[in-house]
Amino acid sequence: MGSKKDIQHRIVTAFQRPLNRVVRRLPGHQLLETTGRVSGQPRITPIGGRRTGDQFWLVSEFGERSQYVRNIMADNRVRVRLHGRWHSGVAHLVHDDDPRARLRALPRYNSAAVRAVGTDLLTIRVDLEA
């Protein structure tokens, strides 16, 4: 039997997978493109975060258990789609940041969802290229 975190992770990701397939096709949504650590193929994940200057900040609800975070750990070169335009960048896991405080500075609805379902919050900073 899995832990409560394992069960919550499985339930949430089972719900998110089909929803994400639809959301990533809709215009205007923020997307993160990573390179699959096994396949080498582009992997696109709907995200919620905020651009601040040449950085984009987001919080993963399942930390290093999230597939996109595991992809970042294998290859931190990413792309972020903001307002319909793709931006290349380098992602960094920011373990010493307070993800709950960070969520207060990010878009409200996404932050509320991350807080509600997240078990291992982890801040991610993407340094965007010019």
Results as ranks from 00 to 15, higher is better:
Asn110Arg: 09
Ser88Met: 10
Ser111Cys: 05
His87Ala: 11
Leu31Pro: 02
Leu103Phe: 02
Arg10Asn: 08
Ala105Gln: 09
Arg17Glu: 11
Leu122Asp: 00
Asp98Trp: 01
Arg104Thr: 11
Val23Arg: 14
Ser3Phe: 03
Gln8Cys: 08
Val23Asn: 06
Gln8His: 03
Ala113Lys: 11
Asp127Trp: 00
Pro107Thr: 02
Gly48Phe: 02
Ala116Tyr: 09
Leu19Cys: 12
Asn20His: 11
Ile44Ser: 07
Tyr109Thr: 12
His9Ser: 08
Trp86His: 05
Val90Leu: 12
Leu82Ala: 04
Arg81Cys: 15
Val94Asn: 10
Asp127Gly: 02
Ala14Glu: 07
Val59Ile: 06
Trp57Pro: 11
Thr45Phe: 00
Asp97Lys: 12
Pro18Val: 05
Val117Ser: 02
Val114Phe: 01
Arg77Thr: 11
Ala116Ser: 13
His95Glu: 13
Met1His: 12
Val59Cys: 09
Arg115Trp: 06
Val90Met: 13
Ala91Thr: 04
Gly89Val: 08
Asp120Tyr: 05
Leu122Ala: 01
Gly89Lys: 05
Ala74Pro: 08
Leu122Pro: 03
Arg85His: 10
Arg43Glu: 11
Gly40His: 03
Ser3Trp: 04
Asp98Leu: 01
Val69Gly: 00
Val38His: 13
Gln55Ser: 15
Ser88Val: 06
Arg108Pro: 04
Gly48Met: 03
Asp127Phe: 00
Val38Asn: 12
Arg108Ile: 10
Leu82Asp: 04
Phe56Ile: 03
Thr45Ala: 00
Ala112Arg: 14
Gln30Pro: 05
Arg108Phe: 11
Arg24Lys: 15
Val80Phe: 04
Asp127Met: 01
Phe15Leu: 15
Gly53Asp: 08
Val126His: 00
Val59Lys: 04
Thr119Trp: 05
Val38Arg: 15
Val69Asp: 00
Pro107Trp: 02
Val94Gly: 10
Arg25Ala: 11
Lys4Pro: 05
Ile124Glu: 04
